[in-house]
Design a protein around this nucleic acid. Sequence first.
DNA 1: CGTGTGACTGACC
DNA 2: AGGTCAGCCACAC
Length: 126
Amino acid sequence: MSTDGRYRRIWNQVAIIPPGKVASYGQIAQLAGMPRGARMVGRALGRAPAELKLPWHRVLNAQGRIALPPDSRGYQRQQEQLQQEGIEVISGRVDLSRFGWRPTLDELVWGPGMLSDSDPGGESGA
DNA sequence: CGTGTGACTGACC
DNA sequence: AGGTCAGCCACAC
């Protein structure tokens, strides 16, 4: 399994976060099959090709807080895009109990993967 | 190839 | 509520 392959699974998960909802790095990591890969999610987002148009702003830390440096450009952009979707952001923080994404079985099964999933190599299982 | 780092997290204090 | 620590793993040196 290549690093790129893991990143792709992460990107896939981020891509299916519905508008108006947010997920944590750890949550995305878990959905991607990497229970302790929270840090890798952040790295993957940084490496994500722009053309994927990933809703990266919907990814917050376990506290519902924006993980980027408060004085950074990305921080401001993320907060702005979240509010743009109707997500209430207070002091760079979102109430996960209200806006946290609760993935449904359908979303997990019928997500980006499925018919036209770009999976050249094919996983060794499933 | 060893070390330090970080868009993280959970456990402790 | 905040600070420290140890895991985590790809990456830069």
